[in-house]
C-alpha cells in the first residue's frame, strides 16, 4: 500500500542560496522525465523556479498571484500544467509576500488555519501526483510553516559553511512548530550542496558537524551536489535543467566543428550555444541524489506498509 501524503516533500532551510530551488527543479524534472507525475510548488517570493525551468516572463508566470490568493483567501489553485512532460507547477513570485502578510494576520486569529493554508489549497489534486516538491522560501516563517504542515517529508539542503548549518537548526524549530498539526512530518534527509570537490577536508568537517547536530549519520545523503558555477549560471540563463543542459552541450558542435564551419564561410554554428561541460558532473550529482531519494521513499513507505499490515492483523 502506498499513500499520497508520503510523497509531499518540503525542500527547506532557513538560509538562502543553499540550493533549495535548484534541487527542487532538477530532482523533480528528472523524475518527470522518467515518467513520474510531478508537481513543483514554488513558495518562494523570489520565484526563482521560473528561471530554473524557463517559464519566467511567459504566460505561465503570474508572479505567484494565484497561489498567493489561494493561501490568503482559502481558495483552491490550479497548477500550470505541462511545464515539462509530466511536470506541473504552482507558480511562485513576489505576490507571495502578500500571502505571507495575509497568513500572519490569519495566524493571529486562527493559527492552525494559517498553517494548513497550503495543505487545504492543494487537497483536491495532491493525490494525483507521484511526487510533490515544495520549494520553500529562506525567510517568511508563515510560508515555511504552511509548507511543512502540508508535507510528509522535509529535505534540507545545506552548504558546508557554519551559517548554513545554523539554518539547519532553525528548520528544526520550524518542524517543532507544526508537529502539533502534522505529527507525521519527518526528515527525509540532509544534502550537502555547492561542495568544492577538491576541498575534501572542508566537506568531511561539515559532514561530521551535521552528524553531530542531528545525532545520526544516516540522515545525510551520500551524494553531495558539486559547485559548478558556469553550469549553474548557464542553466538559469537558458531555462534548462542540468541534465537538459548536458544534452544540449553534448549535441552542440565541437570546437573544431565550429572552427571548420567558420573557415568554410558558414556562420559560426553554436558560437552562442551551450558550452558548460561541467553540466555533465552536475547532472550526475542530481541523478545520484534522485536515486537516493527514491530509495529512501520506497524503503520508508515499505516499512510503513509493513507496520500497518502487522498492526492490522493483530
Amino acid at each position: 500500500m502506498s499513500y499520497a501524503g508520503s510523497r509531499v516533500v518540503a525542500v527547506v532551510n532557513g538560509k538562502g542560496g543553499v540550493g533549495k530551488t535548484t534541487i527542487t527543479a532538477n530532482v523533480g524534472g528528472m523524475l518527470a522525465a522518467g515518467g513520474a507525475r510531478v508537481l513543483l510548488i514554488d513558495l518562494d517570493p523570489q520565484g526563482n523556479l521560473a528561471e530554473e525551468l524557463g517559464y519566467a516572463g511567459t504566460d505561465a508566470d503570474d508572479d505567484g498571484l494565484a497561489l498567493a490568493q489561494a493561501l490568503a483567501f482559502s481558495t483552491t489553485v490550479t497548477p500550470r500544467l505541462g511545464i515539462r512532460d509530466h511536470l506541473d507547477v504552482l507558480v511562485g513570485g513576489s505576490q507571495l509576500d502578500m500571502a505571507a502578510a495575509g497568513l500572519t494576520m490569519r495566524a493571529h486569529k486562527d493559527p492552525a488555519a494559517a498553517k494548513t493554508a497550503l495543505a487545504d489549497a492543494i487537497a483536491g489534486y495532491v493525490e494525483d501526483y507521484d511526487l510533490v516538491l515544495i520549494d520553500c522560501p529562506p525567510g517568511q516563517e508563515t510560508l515555511q510553516q504552511a509548507a511543512l504542515a502540508a508535507a510528509r517529508w522535509a529535505l534540507i539542503p545545506v552548504k558546508t559553511d557554519a551559517s548554513s548549518r545554523k539554518g539547519l537548526r532553525d528548520v528544526a524549530r520550524r518542524l517543532e512548530a507544526v508537529v502539533d498539526i502534522n505529527p507525521d512530518l519527518d526528515l527525509l534527509g540532509v544534502v550537502l550542496f555547492g561542495v568544492n570537490r577538491a576541498a575534501r577536508r572542508v566537506s568531511d568537517t561539515a559532514r561530521a558537524a551535521i552528524t553531530a547536530d542531528l545525532g545520526s549519520p544516516e540522515v545525510l545523503f551520500a551524494t553531495a551536489i558539486r559547485h559548478a558555477e558556469a553550469a549553474a549560471q548557464e542553466t538559469r540563463d537558458r531555462g534548462l535543467l542540468a541534465y537538459e543542459l548536458e544534452e544540449a552541450v553534448l549535441a552542440a558542435p565541437k570546437w573544431y566543428e565550429r572552427l571548420r564551419g567558420a573557415t568554410a564561410g558558414q556562420p559560426a554554428a553554436g558560437g552562442e550555444g551551450p558550452r558548460s561541460r561541467s553540466a555533465t558532473g552536475l547532472a550526475e550529482d542530481f541523478q545520484a541524489l534522485g536515486e537516493e531519494i527514491i530509495a529512501r521513499l520506497s524503503h520508508r513507505e515499505a516499512a510503513a506498509t509493513a507496520v500497518a499490515t502487522t498492526g492490522g492483523t493483530r
Binding site: 515518467g35 507521484d130 541534465y243 541523478q287 520506497s298
Partner: peptide
Amino acid sequence: PRRALAGLP
C-alpha cells in the same frame, strides 16, 4: 533524455 529518474513506485 539520457538521464531520467525511474523507480519511484
